[in-house]
């Protein structure tokens, strides 16, 4: 009995194959996801590294060079105050993606904590799931707008206009988007709790905290990763929608949504200025969504074998 076990345990050692390599192999076979990954990496790279190569200041006003078309000095032209569009797009992308990532982090953190506590501790389940239902019944976009309206002034007074608004928008998006993650995670945890290895861990006296960190969390990682990717996309869209409605970042602080909003007034004369940030938002969100799609397939063991 023990001998056969040893043999089967030794067999994989010859052909080392771990879970993440399988996931990566499956992910690579998803054409859309790979393309998405390349596009997203390119956008991320140009947003982070771009300002070092194209070192023009995004807020530098040059009234004599306003409303220019593409030229050597300004590859993507200038806006109504003569600010360089390329620099503004890169600066705006940095803020938009930073907001997306941070808000996603917050929402995933909240969703995971609430989902695991609801699934793991039966006493908390009812209360936390009622809370989730309540949040799902809230009209989110109106509430986001109201939150921005109410807390914009006090927060920008306390932390300065940039950090204040950044904090406000990240927190507002984070606390209004954790519900789906919480529900998915709770479902997974409920199923996991019935498995033998949890029983085994409990029978050797593992404390609940250790149990969650060591046994539950690694097993619910894949749905969390998928909703994290999709969360980035929706956070970027929400942020740009807020900016588009005039309730986002202040005007001299470019984000993609804000650039689009500023350019809409002169859409008939300078349509390029609307299209560029719009394409940037759409490409980012599209690529992130495709990555999420590929991740979902790659992390699903039922599909991975095929």
């Amino acid at each position: 009995m023990t001998d056969t076990n040893l043999v089967t345990a030794a067999a994989p050692a010859e052909a080392p194959s771990n879970q993440w390599r399988d996931v990566w192999r499956q992910f690579r076979s998803h054409r859309g996801a790979m393309l998405g990954l390349i596009v997203f990496a390119a956008i991320l790279g140009s947003v982070i590294l771009g300002p070092f190569i194209w070192s023009m200041d995004a807020t530098f006003v040059d009234m004599r060079a306003r409303n220019q078309g593409p030229s050597g000095a300004h590859p993507l032209g200038t806006d109504q105050l003569g600010r360089d569009m390329l620099a503004r797009l890169m600066a705006g992308g940095k803020v938009s993606i930073a907001v997306g990532m941070t808000a996603m982090g917050l929402s995933i953190f909240l969703g995971t904590v609430i989902g695991i506590s609801a699934g793991f501790f039966r006493r908390l389940d009812g209360v936390l799931m009622r809370l989730t239902d309540l949040f799902l019944a809230l009209p989110l976009l109106p509430l986001l707008l109201v939150m921005v309206m109410l807390f914009r002034e006090p927060l920008s007074k306390r932390f300065g206009p940039e950090t204040g608004i950044f904090l406000l928008i990240v927190v507002a998006i984070g606390v209004t988007s954790w519900m789906q993650t919480a529900r998915i995670v709770r479902g997974e945890v409920l199923a996991l709790k019935e498995r033998e290895f949890v029983l085994a861990a409990r029978s050797i006296g593992t404390s609940p905290f250790k149990m969650i960190v060591r046994h539950i969390l690694p097993n619910v990682l894949s749905p969390i990763m998928v909703s994290a990717t999709l969360g980035i996309a929706s956070a970027i869209i929400t942020e740009s929608a807020l900016s588009f409605l005039g309730l986002g970042f202040p005007p001299d602080f470019p984000t993609w949504g804000r650039l689009l909003f500023d350019a809409v007034d002169q859409i008939q004369l300078y349509p390029m200025r609307v299209i560029l940030p719009g394409i940037a938002i759409s490409l980012t969100v599209l690529s992130v969504n495709y990555i999420g799609d590929g991740l979902r397939d790659a992390l699903d063991p039922r599909i991975r074998g095929r």
Binding site: G32, A233, I237, S240, A241, F244, L260, V264, I267, Q268, P271, V274, I275, G278, I281, S282, V285, L286, N289, Y290, D293
Partner: peptide, 21 residues
């Protein structure tokens, strides 16, 4: 995929540029 990735304010603006302007 495009339909729910491209925000409605951008599709709207693009339609305005093409069909109205």
């Amino acid at each position: 995929m495009i339909g729910f990735s491209v925000p409605t304010f951008f599709t709207g603006v693009v339609l305005i540029i093409i069909f109205a302007v």
